[in-house]
């Protein structure tokens, strides 16, 4: 009997988790960060993506289940001093935070461990970029000045003292919300984005390594709003945390 209940609970949990995902049919698209010389389209395989970023409540449940990710127990190799520092304690959000706010101040290691605890993974940059290219009505809105301006408006605002809850912005074409305008998000391959820490290096021996650099020039100014996200990600190390940096999970479509 107890076993049955447990199985039911697990099944229900799985069902709930499944509805949190949006299925995104893959395809070819032109990334702001092409894979190689020339501007070949990038192929993205079908995948599933969380409809909203992981919340404080979800991450709290995770650290309660896996105490080695509590802020007082985490290995300093895996998270810097700012890790979950805004929570009241290692196991309590405190009164100033809301459960439905996106969790921030998490390292890449912790985000990755969270997704793996759900049998999932972090999205790759291409997956994230592909999903984030959509507006509410079309899958690729990157040519739409209004879409671009909304991204830039977020950059133009200093951080709000209190982050809004997740899921407040309208879902996009795929049913995914908050890809822009709420927080930065970790991606699985953030440290392979190959952007130099001095963005002005564009020629020279490292030309190939810095192939993304060509795109950082004004010639691709339509994409600079998205490139600023890459610039942000490239400033990070896997143990870093920041006040505006959270994540969501993905998985391969089956």
């Amino acid at each position: 009997m107890r076993h049955l209940l447990l199985i039911a609970a697990v099944l229900c949990g799985t069902a709930a988790a499944a509805s949190e995902h949006a299925a995104i049919g893959g395809g070819q698209f032109s990334s702001v960060l092409p894979q190689g010389p020339g501007n070949e389209p990038v192929t993205v395989a079908p995948f599933k993506l969380d409809r909203h970023p992981v919340t404080n409540a979800e991450f709290l449940a995770f650290v309660l289940k896996q105490p080695r990710w509590r802020r007082d127990r985490v290995a300093t190799l895996f998270a810097d001093a700012g890790y979950l520092a805004h929570w009241r304690s290692a196991t309590d959000l405190g009164g100033d935070l809301r459960p439905q706010q996106p969790v921030t101040r998490v390292s890449w290691f912790a985000a990755k461990a969270y997704c793996e605890s759900r049998g999932e993974r972090l999205p790759t940059w291409y997956e994230w970029e592909y999903a984030a290219a959509a507006s509410e009505t079309v899958p690729d809105a990157r040519g739409d000045p209004a879409w671009r301006q909304r991204i830039l408006d977020w950059y133009a605002q200093p951080s709000p003292p209190v982050l809004p809850d997740v899921g407040r912005s309208p879902a996009n074409y795929y049913g995914v919300s908050d890809l822009h305008g709420l927080i930065w998000e970790w991606v699985l391959d953030f440290n392979a984005l190959l952007v130099s820490s001095d963005s002005r290096e564009q020629g020279g021996a490292d030309r190939l390594r810095f192939c993304g650099e060509g795109a950082l020039s004004a010639a691709d100014r339509e994409h600079y709003a998205v490139l600023m996200r890459i610039a942000f990600l490239s400033s990070l190390e896997a143990r870093y945390t920041t006040a505006n940096l959270g994540f969501r999970c993905a998985q391969d479509a089956r």
Binding site: D198, Y240, T241, N244
Partner: peptide, 15 residues
């Protein structure tokens, strides 16, 4: 020096 310090000072928020 190359970059005038730029490459050595690329810094994420809170760092």
């Amino acid at each position: 020096g190359p970059g005038g310090g730029a490459a050595s000072s690329f810094t994420a928020p809170g760092h």
